[in-house]
């Protein structure tokens, strides 16, 4: 009689140690430790009215979603208090966006963030919204605070375009981070212009891309109207929830397990190797607000 071999034991022999299990497909068993510490909050907020049938965003609904998420995250009574808890009037604030053609950070969300930052007392000249050219922008090189905001999508080499990966434009040669399918992207967060400055992470889950094809890695067929935002302080935790949603969507769409390819190493290793945050679902307090139809998580 054979002794049953466990996926846990296989992983313990691998470079990822106990990191990957719960987030890899084909791994039905929770493999993270049962830490007893405080859970990391991540807010998932959805609103079915945030876009119309042509996927045009409603700026008012978008702003309200963001503010409600922040109120819950910061445990404050209103949006004004929430923003003041995140940003000081003296701050110089870089809003790190994403301009990928097919799925950029929505302008309506950028504006909502900008208004929020200004409501905390930061004048317009001390904030900047951009994705490219960060190293030539004094707000990003000499700033005191960063807000990280981007849509989640699959990616041909890193598995997904994530919040962790969004700081890749802080380097002049991104390919330096490509070895081992971008395993060590979390080290971007140790760069001098970045370390310790991120006040908020927002993963845009409005129309996520759950499968990519061809050199443009995009086809509308592989997006859906999820109409959500994931908001948190810990980028690893927020990304981790985002991956679970993408994986569930893939399972639903393909009607079987289809692992994200290649596996999303960089998020697991951001937890276990680089200690940037937690990817462990058991250590994440997922707070769900708003529309809950087909929530997938």
């Amino acid at each position: 009689m054979l002794k049953k071999i466990t996926r846990r034991s296989l992983l313990k022999k691998s470079a990822l140690a106990t990191a990957a299990g719960a987030l890899y497909l084909n791994f039905p068993y929770p493999l993270f430790g049962n830490g007893s510490g405080q859970k990391t909050p991540v807010v998932l907020i959805r609103d079915e009215n945030v876009m119309d049938e042509s996927r045009k965003f409603n700026p008012g609904v978008m702003k309200e979603m963001l503010n409600q998420a922040l109120i819950r995250l910061t445990k404050t009574k209103n949006a004004g208090e929430a923003w003041k808890k995140l940003i000081n009037p003296e701050d110089v604030v870089g809003i790190k966006s994403n301009v990928w053609n097919y799925l950029p950070t929505p302008k309506e969300l950028e504006m909502a963030i900008k208004e929020g930052v200004m409501s905390a007392g930061v004048p317009e000249e001390r904030l900047s919204i951009r994705d490219r050219g960060l190293l030539d922008d004094p707000v990003f090189t000499g700033g005191t605070a960063l807000i990280n905001v981007r849509p989640m999508r699959t990616h041909d080499w890193s598995g997904v375009g994530s919040l962790i990966k969004n700081y890749i434009t802080f380097v002049r040669k991104p390919s330096m981070y490509h070895p081992d399918t971008c395993a060590d992207l979390a080290t971007l967060w140790k760069l001098p212009f970045v370390e310790g400055k991120t006040r908020l992470n927002i993963l845009v889950m409005m129309t996520p891309l759950f499968n990519g094809v061809g050199p443009h890695h995009y086809n509308k067929k592989y997006t859906w109207e999820y109409k959500g935002l994931l908001v948190g302080f810990d980028p690893v935790a927020v990304d981790s929830v985002g991956i679970r949603i993408l994986q569930e969507k893939r399972r639903e769409f393909f009607d079987e397990d289809r692992p994200i390819k290649p596996p999303v190493k960089h998020i697991f290793l951001a937890d276990t190797r680089h200690h940037l945050g937690t990817a462990d679902p058991a250590k994440i307090d997922l707070i769900k607000l708003g529309w809950d139809k087909d929530i997938l998580v």
Binding site: A15, L16, L25, K261, P262, P263
Partner: peptide, 9 residues
């Protein structure tokens, strides 16, 4: 690992 998780190494 494209179809099934086998190894990270």
């Amino acid at each position: 690992n494209s179809l099934y998780y086998i190894s990270d190494e």
